[in-house]
């Protein structure tokens, strides 16, 4: 038995190999191969519609047919280890006509634990996530933020080893988001593997071990922010606002940037945001602006955050 447990521990909690998924006229995911270690917190990011939620749904078993590739949970096909996964869907999934207590009991039973075990675990989690409410209330009688937290709690009643959260921060204010990040970090310390999707990129970069960027249904990048910056050759962000910027000037700037491998990450009227790899590139850029007789004021020159890096990606 000990040998068996050791063997399980050695197995990676989750591996996907060559996972693909298509709708009749659209390929959503292509050749997704990734793995997650115990105690790792990863975030999948990408544009809306790039297949983040679809990938999570395939891993969690919500989409269980017509996908290609293999998914293994602790080395076994997903079907045999489904109870090791806790999935929090993007939409709050509560039974609206039943009390919070009944919801806890039913979702606990659904996860394969007894009603008493479910209530005990729920109370513990509700204390951590500061959701101290009357359990006889209906879900509609608590706030939106509380419902989001309850939605997460219901996925954790059976103490899963892998936690999959689809946009868990949507609908939460800053305080609740911080509370949830701390909670997820505490789970990571306990050896849980966590995969989540989020659009709050700057917040995500502070907490996750690894980022996976999906682009056009494929894994574009997997690693931390530093690795991403290196890959994209963006070490600095340079933001400036011109007093006047003609179309011909903008055309000249764009031409120069393409030639010198400087990225224009954002442009709006007289505002431009550049992604720059070295400080030398900045001085070359300034020389060009002087040559064009442009007047400008510098807004910032700093390290990029994940949002800005993501713009490049």
């Amino acid at each position: 038995m000990k040998f068996f447990n050791k063997l399980i521990k050695k197995q990676k909690p989750l591996t996907t190999s060559s996972v693909g998924f298509s709708y009749p006229n659209q390929e959503v995911l292509r050749d997704i191969s990734l793995s997650i270690k115990s105690g790792e917190l990863i975030s999948i990011i990408g544009e809306s519609g790039c297949g983040k939620s679809t990938l999570l749904k395939i891993i969690a078993g919500i989409i269980s047919t017509s996908y290609q590739g293999k998914i293994k949970i602790f080395g076994k096909p997903k079907l045999f280890n489904k109870n090791k996964i806790g999935f929090t869907p993007q939409e709050v999934s509560l039974i609206p006509d039943l009390s919070i207590l009944d919801n806890i009991k039913i979702f606990g039973l659904n996860s394969g634990i007894t009603e008493n075990q479910a209530i005990k675990k729920a109370n513990e989690l509700m204390q951590i996530l500061k959701l101290e409410e009357d359990l006889n209330k209906l879900p509609s009688q608590i706030s939106g933020g509380q419902r989001v937290r309850l939605n997460i709690i219901l996925s954790l009643l059976h103490d899963p080893k892998i936690l999959i959260l689809d946009e868990p921060f949507a609908g939460l204010d800053f305080l609740n988001r911080r509370l949830l990040w701390h909670f997820l970090e505490s789970l990571r310390k306990k050896g849980k593997s966590i995969i989540l999707t989020s659009h709050l990129l700057t917040e995500t970069q502070e907490h996750v071990d690894r980022l996976i960027i999906l682009k056009k249904g494929k894994v574009f990048f997997s690693g931390n922010l530093e690795k991403l910056k290196a890959k994209l050759k963006i070490n600095y962000i340079y933001e400036i606002r011109f007093t006047h910027l003609s179309k011909s000037n903008l055309k000249e700037i764009r031409k120069y940037c393409t030639y010198k491998d400087v990225k224009i990450l954002d442009s709006y009227e007289k505002y431009l945001m550049f992604g720059i790899n070295t400080e030398r590139q900045k001085s070359y850029l300034l020389k060009l602006l002087q040559k064009l007789n442009l007047k400008w004021s510098e807004i910032s020159f700093r390290e990029p955050n994940l949002d800005e890096t993501f713009l490049k990606a």
Binding site: I62, F87, P89, N110, L154
Partner: peptide, 13 residues
Amino acid sequence: NCGFITRVKASSS
């Protein structure tokens, strides 16, 4: 509509 089937599919057959 209330997402219960999603939970069912995530937890078991």
